[in-house]
Design a protein around this nucleic acid. Structure first.
Length: 288
DNA sequence: CATATGTCCTGAGAGC
DNA sequence: TGCTCTCAGGACATAT
């Protein structure tokens, strides 16, 4: 489930395509269902073929390939099982898109193709201009990147909400990049109960949450993301991430808490998604 | 407006 | 053993 750390790992993994020209875009017919490429495949090809990738960026949980003057850009949205790859994909049948790359000048290390692979096919790739980018991914749609969020930003954007803090952290309009896995992990590290209404958090909690978020996300990036037991997530070279070995609560129900050693990790369901937490580290009511 | 629910999809695992 | 069923959760559409 690519969240900010996995998508950032993808971005870094394919940064070496910067400067390459997209010679051809090929929608792979071997997939069960072709990837959704915005409205029109012909339009996609026309708009990307012959263009130069001038930088590789990330916005929330999406990878951006900036083209030429930076007006047009390819948005890659992996959602659940999407991968961006320079190496051979895990399976042939779920390969959705292939960008054939050409290098200008002496660039021996630059890969010849960039692949989009997606087992479940919920992800999408589209090309947008600056206007459409603003409409779809601008400030009205996405909050500040989670790596740049300060305690004040989190408090200002969430403190009026009656929602549980864990549910609110998944709202990309509040803060961009956090998903189901890292929401549990950062709340655990901040010692905040996941069901706590945002409006009940105090300023000390926002401080704790902000620093916990940075620690968890940066640690996860350092380990190149989390490859869960289904093995889906891989980096651009088709290698597993390592942060799953450092999860303290996620998917660890019934295990003892690695932080306090006394609590037993519990699983609850919030908004039809699993949440994991330690009842000892994250009490529903804080002792004062 | 804020919040909640339903939808898409595939493969793993459970249960019989 | 092989079938059916449930579940996982990203973002968005629709409902309350």
């Amino acid at each position: 489930m690519p969240e900010l750390p996995e998508v950032e790992t993808m971005r870094r993994g394919i940064a070496c395509v910067t400067g390459a020209v997209i010679e051809a875009a090929e929608r792979c017919r071997c997939s069960r269902r072709p990837i959704e490429i915005g409205p029109h495949w012909r339009g996609f090809r026309r708009r990307v073929e012959g263009r130069t990738i001038t930088s590789v960026e990330r916005v929330g949980k999406r990878v951006l390939l900036m083209l030429d003057e930076g007006v047009e850009r390819i948005v890659i949205e992996p959602r659940m099982t999407g991968l961006v790859l320079l190496a051979a994909p895990p399976t042939r049948e779920h390969l959705r898109l292939r960008l054939h790359l050409k290098s200008r000048g002496r660039t021996p290390d630059r890969p010849a193709e960039l692949l989009y692979w997606d087992r479940r096919g919920l992800g999408l790739v589209r090309v947008v201009d600056a206007d459409e980018f603003g409409r779809r991914y601008g400030d009205a749609k996405l909050g500040p990147d989670a790596l740049l969020a300060t305690p004040e930003m989190l408090r200002d954007r969430l403190c009026a909400s009656r929602r549980a803090i864990k549910v609110a952290l998944l709202d990309q309009r509040a803060v961009a990049g956090i998903g189901n896995l890292y929401a549990s992990e950062m709340l655990h590290r901040a010692s905040i109960h996941p069901a706590m209404p945002c409006s009940k958090l105090r300023s000390a909690d926002w401080e704790l949450l902000s620093s916990a978020a940075l620690e968890v996300l940066n640690d996860a990036i350092r380990y190149e993301g989390s490859t869960l037991s289904d093995g889906t997530y891989r980096n651009a070279l088709n290698r597993s991430g390592g942060y799953q070995n450092h999860h303290r609560v996620y998917d660890r129900a019934g295990n003892s808490c690695p932080t306090c050693g006394a609590g037993v990790i519990e699983r609850i369901v919030q908004s039809q998604r699993s949440t994991f937490y330690c009842p000892m580290c994250q009490p529903a009511r804080k002792p004062r």
